[in-house]
Amino acid sequence: MHQQPVKLGCHNVWKLYGPHPERLLAGGAAPDLDAIRASGHVGAVRNVSIDVRQGEIFVIMGLSGSGKSTLVRCLSRLVEPTAGEILFNGKDLLQARPKELIDIRRHKMGMVFQHFALLPHLNVLQNVAFPLQVQGIGRAAREARAEEVIALVGLEGREAYFPRQLSGGQQQRVGIARSLVVEPELWFLDEPFSALDPLIRREMQDEFLRVQQLLHKTIVFITHDFDEAIRIADRIAIMKDGEVIQVATPEELVLNPAADYVAEFTRYVSRAKVVTLGRIAVPGAAEGAAGTLPETVRVEAVANEVEAAAAPFNVIDEDGVVIGHVTRQAVIDVLVGRGGRG
């Protein structure tokens, strides 16, 4: 895969809550969890370094209280990190003056919230148009633009509804539309589907992937649901007690968990959901192949097709070069959990 440029870089970021957090980190010290606790502080984010690349879906996964929300709020500077550096498009966000920050948020960032955070006194159209309104854009222009994104998330016809008249799923569609109305480069979603029922959640994930297919945003997506993470992520960062334990693609994570803690999550995940054809392809093009498939496709997505065909499929990389082939047997092995080469 071609390496995309880093959109958002975050280096050695700390956020401690407590009586005198700066003192704990004075002189570049890196206290461990026990030292932080013993001094009466909470280590919400500890020494986190991650790079989010242009156009990728970067998922931050961790249990409740592991510091996900605090980290994403540091990245958007909703909370001031205690220490560290955050580079947005190569510029240090922490050095930005209030005016610049307002400007960046107005034009380059969008955020979706767990509990939707819709304004109760505005209807759908007004809610979606709100970010444009605070920029001082005229009514006709902002409402026309709002209509576009409302259509994008499939809420046409409900413009005049108020948030309380909508279901949870519909409210979050409004939240998504509102965060996209300014065409942000960087899109933060803090557990956007966690407050929804499981069925709706799945529908919304599909919806989200569809929208991303169209828009190619750079995304930081928070979730506590590992299944959700592997479903949508290009890369996942696993958080625990404020620390990032591992950053990897879903496939890597499942096949090579870096710690027991990660393995706990991955143990019951079906391999077919994460293993890509590139991983199980045998080198060399197959004679009389039934067809070609891209290397990034996950086994689950093409299992039926490969299994039904009489001949193997060739696997190509993104430049169309054949890198190997997959056999029916290899796919079945993955499906029933044999190998997939650990």
């Binding site: 909703l78 307002i102 034009h107 767990q114």
Partner: peptide
């Protein structure tokens, strides 16, 4: 969250 939204909308 609504507070945060106000900030993120660039108010």
């Amino acid at each position: 969250e609504i507070r945060d939204f106000g900030v993120m909308a660039g108010c």
